[in-house]
Amino acid sequence: MDMERIKRVGIAAACSGGKVLQEHFGKLRSVRKKGAIDLVSEADIRSEAAIIDTIAEAFPDHAILAEESGTHAGSGGRWIIDPLDGTTNFTHNLPLFCVSIAFAVDDRVLAGFVLAPLLGELFVGVKDQGAQLNGRPIFVSNTPELADSLLVTGFPYDHQTIFEPLIRRFGRCLAATQGVRRLGSAALDLCYVASGRFDGFWEQHLKAWDTAAGFLVATEAGARTTVFSGAPYAVDEDEIVSTNGFIHDELLNLLE
């Protein structure tokens, strides 16, 4: 597998999607609901199309799993795409959103690309090659104790179905740390753990396109990533915990 080519195409695809998002930011004409609070806009659709076109031109045989258009059959590798992670932020003109693209072989994530176009930040992780932000190496924080940590979490679109345990976990983590933030993009949350801005992140009821790219970036930056039970994270899991490693077990105890 030519990972340098995968990296070039992944970055190009992220930039293609990011350009579309920049062009549409603050200018949306239509937004529809996939669920009660789950939104999709023309920016999602057009960003995804631009990303897929870029990838298909370079790797026409590869499979694709994309949030809006679903599964595209193929072989030799699979691209996992969220064309706009943080759609609710985007539709409210908040710049905290991103393009998230992962490349996997046999469900093993080998590369991740997360671009926040309005923030000018491109996070890249390649298996066994480390993680970078705008070309510079990044690493998780060295905060040793949960009490000194800053965490980030997210609330799923179907949060009403798990409202009580969701709030209990949030409350325990808020009481035990320096604070908990909620930004609205799981991919960025994971990249912010990777770059040491947050010490840990947890969320549940997620999809592969929400977490695959950020997971690889965080892992390559030194993060420990599991599910709530402590078992290893995999792309088909719907929950994730990612930390600097030092606070991981303490955080898992709060999430029981």
Results as ranks from 00 to 15, higher is better:
80 I>L: 14
210 D>I: 00
151 L>M: 06
5 R>N: 13
109 V>Q: 05
191 C>G: 10
36 A>V: 14
225 T>H: 03
14 A>M: 11
155 F>L: 13
64 I>Q: 06
102 A>V: 07
198 F>L: 04
252 L>N: 06
240 I>N: 00
71 T>Y: 12
145 E>M: 09
163 F>C: 07
238 D>C: 10
247 I>F: 08
80 I>W: 10
168 R>N: 10
175 A>R: 14
47 S>F: 08
174 L>R: 12
142 N>H: 09
124 V>G: 05
23 E>W: 04
164 E>N: 07
234 A>I: 09
238 D>R: 11
208 A>C: 14
15 C>Q: 07
142 N>D: 14
131 A>D: 04
37 I>A: 09
235 V>Y: 03
150 L>I: 14
87 T>R: 05
170 F>Y: 15
80 I>P: 13
151 L>Y: 01
10 G>Y: 10
3 M>V: 11
248 H>Q: 06
102 A>P: 07
145 E>C: 05
177 T>A: 10
68 E>N: 01
186 A>W: 00
53 D>Q: 09
182 R>P: 00
180 V>W: 01
172 R>D: 12
43 A>V: 01
123 F>K: 02
190 L>H: 02
131 A>Q: 05
125 G>R: 02
22 Q>H: 03
238 D>N: 14
175 A>T: 10
44 D>P: 04
92 H>M: 14
59 F>M: 03
171 G>T: 12
177 T>D: 08
219 T>D: 09
179 G>I: 08
151 L>C: 02
5 R>Y: 06
193 V>E: 01
206 L>K: 00
2 D>R: 10
62 H>A: 14
222 G>I: 06
127 K>D: 15
154 G>M: 04
180 V>E: 01
20 V>Y: 02
115 L>F: 12
224 R>N: 04
60 P>G: 12
188 L>R: 00
126 V>L: 11
250 E>T: 11
79 W>P: 04
17 G>Y: 08
222 G>M: 05
24 H>P: 00
14 A>D: 07
130 G>R: 12
195 S>H: 01
28 L>W: 05
232 P>D: 06
202 W>R: 00
206 L>E: 06
170 F>W: 15
59 F>V: 03
121 E>T: 03
251 L>Y: 13
97 F>D: 02
65 L>V: 09
255 L>Y: 08
48 E>C: 02
43 A>D: 03
214 G>P: 07
229 S>E: 14
102 A>L: 08
77 G>Q: 08
83 P>T: 12
196 G>C: 07
98 C>V: 09
